[in-house]
Structure formats: C-alpha cells, structure tokens
Design a protein around this nucleic acid. Sequence first.
DNA 1: TACAATTTTCACAAATTACTGAAAGTTCGA
DNA 2: TCGAACTTTCAGTAATTTGTGAAAATTGTA
Lengths: 180, 180
Amino acid sequence: MKITPMTQSLVLHFGEMGSRWGLNRTLGQMYALIVLTEAPLNADQISEALQISRSNVSMGLKELKSWNLIKLQHIPGDRKEYFSAPSDIWEIARTLVLERRKRELDPTLSTLRDALMEQATSEADQYAQMRVKQMHDLLEMVTLWTTELQGMSSDKLAALLKLGEGISKLLDVKDKLLLR
Amino acid sequence: MKITPMTQSLVLHFGEMGSRWGLNRTLGQMYALIVLTEAPLNADQISEALQISRSNVSMGLKELKSWNLIKLQHIPGDRKEYFSAPSDIWEIARTLVLERRKRELDPTLSTLRDALMEQATSEADQYAQMRVKQMHDLLEMVTLWTTELQGMSSDKLAALLKLGEGISKLLDVKDKLLLR
DNA sequence: TACAATTTTCACAAATTACTGAAAGTTCGA
DNA sequence: TCGAACTTTCAGTAATTTGTGAAAATTGTA
C-alpha cells in the first residue's frame, strides 16, 4: 500500500496531535490514514503504509473500535476485515465529543459530587467545597451541551457552529424575547 | 503544609485527569491544590503537600506559568514567591480553552491549509483533500467559537452554557426571525 | 473436522517521559 | 559587594508508555 506525500504529512501531523488527544501517536496516524483514504483498509495495508507491526495495528484497531470511530466491513470473497471512517465528518466529531465525555467528564463529575456530599468541617474544606461546586456546575453545563449536540443533525450542528460571532447577539435577542 | 483527606482525593483525581489534558499527572495535582486552597502557596508548601521534589515543583510552576493558569504574588516581609489561581472559575476555563486552541487547533489548521494549497494530482489526493477541507471548515468554526468565548464576560458565558437544551430551540427562533 | 487464513494476546524490549539531587544562577538586603 | 535566601537548570535515573515477534486463539470453508 503506497501512500502519497500529502497523506504522509497529514498522517504525521495527526500522529502528533493524537498524543494530545488521549489517543497516542500511532493511533492518531492510523485514524488519519483511514479518514483520508476512500477505500476501506485492512490491517496489513495499514501496517505497511505506516511501517508499524501487524500486532500494533491490531491493538490500535481495538482501541479505535472502543472509541466507535471506525466501521468494520467485509469485502465479498475476501476473508480480511476492512475498516473505514464515517463519511460524515460531523459524525466523527460527535462521536469524539461523546467518548471523551464518557471517559473524562463523567468520572470527574462523579468525583466532584462525592466531594460535595462530604461534611466540610474545617474552613479549608469549606473553601475547597465552594470551588468544587463551581467546577461541578460548569462541567455539568458542558455535559448538558454535549448531550444536546448528540441529538443534533449534522446540518443543524453546522448551522450552529457557523453562527460564530453571532452567538453573542443571539443571546441578547433571546433576552429581549423573554422580556416581552 | 497539611492537606485534608478531601483535598487529597480531589488532587489525586485531577492528577489522573491532568494526563488526559496535555498536562501531566504532577501538573494536574499541583493545579488542583492551588485551585482548592484559598491562600497563595509557595513552592515549598506544594512540594511538601504533594510529596514531590522541590525541583519538580519548580518545573511544574514554570509550565503552569506558560499556560497563564497561575498568578504570582508576593507576601510582604517574605522573599518567597506565592502562587494562586484566579478566583473566577470561568476565567480559568477561558484560559484553558484559549491555550489549548493555541497549542493544538492553530497548528492543525495551518497544516490543513497547507495541504489544501497543494495541487492534488492523483485521485487519492483529491479525496484526501476533500476530507481535509471538511476538517478544516469544522475546526475553523470551532476556532471562531473559542474566539467568541474569549470576549464574553463570565456572566454571559454562564448564561450561554445554562441555555443547555434551549440552544436547539434558540436556533429555530433565529431562523424564524431571519425569515420574517 | 481439519486446516489454512486471519486476528488477538502477551511477555519482553525499546522509546519516551517524568522525577530527582546537586550544582549553578538570581535576587535582595546589609 | 557579600552572603543568605530562594529559584532554576540539568544530567542521570526511574517510571511509564508504546511497539514487537512469537505463540495462541478464532474464523470460515472444504
């Protein structure tokens, strides 16, 4: 499996990015390759294209599956397993957000809630609890938002994001509507 | 510097979280401690509370400074440097978003743009470029949003987040207003 | 059921990242 | 300008994470 210079450089960049996103370098590279390639790929092709061992690919694929980022498919007459990414980039983004929420936000919220349930005796703990409450409320809102995003169609999501700088104004409009 | 069991467990949790956020475990712990403690702390106190070497604290503090997450202050009659976190949790969140954007989004956008400038000859590259375009547009919108957030007051930010499930409806309202 | 094709697991090796103590550097007051 | 108080740097070590090859497990089909 040959790989063009363009894909090559993108793959390398996303490898670096991957490590900042809870995935690791190889995983980032693998996913970049799958996303950028139209045809579904099998493990051997990935292994060859990225010059990593077959077993490493197997582990990476396992991880990618656990993130729900890839689709398994079979090609008639071929026993190998082929993988591809969703064609809708918004779906990928939505999945990424959802999975990170499950892995990071949810456990953190639960820890914060536990801390809030405790009886704060010392003054130090009272202050800590106050901060915990602030963080908790903030993260809960973020959770609410991500939940909301999950239910939105790709079109709507695109529209929302396009709003961009309009969002601030929109908020003002909302206030006026409520005042009416 | 003693540390209550409550702070202790929160510090440990944010240590784990830190590693998922581009910081590392120690950095997460240090910041949690600073955020949860009302009084500004000096390096020795942090070192003692978290049981890590003085030099490690120095490096962590340096990193935290580069993220703009801590404020340096001096206590009259004491030559040590003391550090504290912003009292406004929204400010912390805003800073975090901004810094991550600078470190991750911006370089990625630039790589994507480079790829888009190239002449795609092969069919493979044309497909790749199409996907790159999708990613680029998505990330550019995210950037726009984060920029917008930077300019918003904490109050407004809180209001926006509180909108939660209302956001979808709000979008509909906007469409109606435009149609009018 | 047997067997070839394919995938997964896992113990170890390699690479990367984080931590430490000692030494060097800085700052400030006398 | 000296020296004590404090901070930073850095080379080496420790810990963690990632990658590999060999072997085991699974799958599909003749």
